[in-house]
Nucleic acid binder design. Sequence first.
DNA 1: CGCTATATGAACAGATCTGTTCACTTTAAT
DNA 2: ATTAAAGTGAACAGATCTGTTCATATAGCG
Lengths: 185, 185
Amino acid sequence: MRAQPRKEHLLDTAFDLFNQHGYHATGIDLILEKSKVSKATMYKHFRSKDELVMAVLKRRHNQVLQQITTSLDNADASAQQPVLAIFDMLFNWFQSDDFYGCNFIKATGEFLNQHEVHQFAVAHKQQIRDLIFQYIQQNDSYLKAKQADTLSLLVNGAIINAQLSNSATPAIDAKNIAQLVLQHD
Amino acid sequence: MRAQPRKEHLLDTAFDLFNQHGYHATGIDLILEKSKVSKATMYKHFRSKDELVMAVLKRRHNQVLQQITTSLDNADASAQQPVLAIFDMLFNWFQSDDFYGCNFIKATGEFLNQHEVHQFAVAHKQQIRDLIFQYIQQNDSYLKAKQADTLSLLVNGAIINAQLSNSATPAIDAKNIAQLVLQHD
DNA sequence: CGCTATATGAACAGATCTGTTCACTTTAAT
DNA sequence: ATTAAAGTGAACAGATCTGTTCATATAGCG
């Protein structure tokens, strides 16, 4: 199979524009203009705009899971709570130029509950929580595994506050809170 | 001045639809159909859709500030941290049938940073943080006033997780975390 | 070189969206 | 009952959006 640079480039451009303008406010034509891809090509790869949105989300989903896994794998195993490495990852993300909040949270806001896109976004967040849950069970076993809910809440709160304040410090705030809560039980 | 039931009804309907479908996905025609108001009337009250959006946000902004103020005023002053009453308010909100997440967070996701709507939404969240800050200074003075950032992060995290999980328990989770963090310092 | 995949661009259809206009009707207060 | 304000409905304009089509161009590969 040949690599598909056009398709990947299209997904990159769409991802950026969706994050900045939102899903409905971003027209197909804008994506095509920015990516220098023709409309016919796009519709050969994706049957509809919704399918493009789903492809963007699925690719990002895999990227995020990969990033979290890598973060946790590289975490200092001698640390008291290696799971907190997640917040260091958030800190880096918040500082990047192309940070415009979480595209999955955005997706739940723009599509109705029963819509495929909404449901995929919810499933994505749930899967992150589950990933944290599993990691705690295996590596920070002295922690109550149910603390995954707490960490998930702190992660999402940090994302929102980082977007609102256009600063990365909520990642540090969240890490400090997490540290306190986790070592308490 | 006469009361303006049509205008208020229009704002009510628009608020609900914006919350469920998002701002851009909600067409004027849908709002008019649901509210049984004619298009001419709407455009007499609001010069554009953006102006309607702003009116919805401004009204909601006042409602939220009022709710928080009332919550804090009615908080058990003998409690250790009366500021935690905010999370009880969140709990009730999350349980209501018309809870579809935070319309201000949604607004930041759908409008560019420099857009009036985006900026108003950011200012709204900042003002809530400031309100908490002031309350802590006056009533929970043994707390570090800067903890308003922590509470803000917990509030927003709870809102997101409540929307994602379609449950009210994140309000309780956030309250427990807040209690722990605040009494620690 | 020549074959085949893939991409292009430009025009087009049809739907939907915001916003305007206007003749007419309803409502509320005097 | 009269009058003035407010609301209605329906048609319309113009912009924008998604999606289609097709003749042409281009790039990779034997």
